[in-house]
Computed example of a mutant assay.
Amino acid sequence: MQHEILTKQQLAERQQRSVESINTACSREPESVPHFFKLGKGKNSPIRFRLSDVIDWEAKQAEKSRKETEAEIERRNQYKQF
């Protein structure tokens, strides 16, 4: 099942984002979406996402968020000691 390919619409639904935010991210901030590939070489060639890449990217984002939260809690605890 992880060989499944997602469209931008399907990714947007999965991540509860707008398709417009996915479009913008693909062109301006590709690091803010999972790895993608184009079906063709043209400017308007469709973009697709492998489900396995999406799952890996989401796991990395969750871990990054967890670490940032822990670091923020640690900073706040250090501040309270003064």
Rank of each mutant, 00 (worst) to 15 (best):
K64S: 13
F49G: 03
S18M: 01
Q2D: 15
F82V: 08
S45A: 15
W57Y: 00
Q78A: 09
H3V: 08
E20P: 01
W57C: 00
S45T: 07
P46H: 04
I5W: 10
T7M: 05
K60I: 06
E4V: 11
K60T: 06
G40N: 06
R66H: 09
L51P: 06
D56Y: 05
Q81N: 12
V19Y: 04
E13A: 06
K67F: 03
V33K: 01
W57Q: 01
I5M: 07
R17M: 11
R14C: 03
S52W: 02
L11D: 00
I73A: 09
K41R: 15
K38W: 01
L39Q: 07
P34V: 03
E31T: 04
D56L: 08
R76A: 07
K8F: 01
L6G: 07
E29W: 11
R50N: 10
K60P: 05
R75Q: 08
N23G: 11
S45H: 00
H35A: 14
N77T: 06
E4W: 09
K41S: 14
R66F: 07
Q2K: 15
L51F: 07
M1W: 14
E70C: 05
Q81F: 00
E72G: 09
F37V: 08
R48C: 10
V54I: 02
E72W: 04
K80H: 09
E68A: 12
S32I: 00
A59V: 06
R75L: 03
Y79L: 10
R14H: 06
I22Q: 02
L6Q: 05
A12H: 05
I73Q: 08
H35R: 15
A71Q: 13
S65C: 06
L11V: 05
Y79V: 04
A71E: 15
K8T: 15
A25L: 06
F82M: 09
Q10I: 07
L11K: 01
V54Q: 04
E13P: 02
R76W: 00
E63I: 10
T7S: 11
E63R: 14
K80C: 02
K80A: 05
H35Y: 15
E29S: 15
N77S: 08
R28E: 02
I73P: 04
K80D: 14
E63C: 08
G40D: 12
H35D: 14
L39G: 08
H35K: 15
F37L: 08
S27T: 08
L39S: 07
E58T: 07
A25F: 04
H3S: 13
I73C: 00
R14M: 10
Q9T: 14
I47D: 04
A12G: 07
N77Q: 13
K41M: 12
Q16E: 14
Q16N: 15
Q9E: 13
K38D: 11
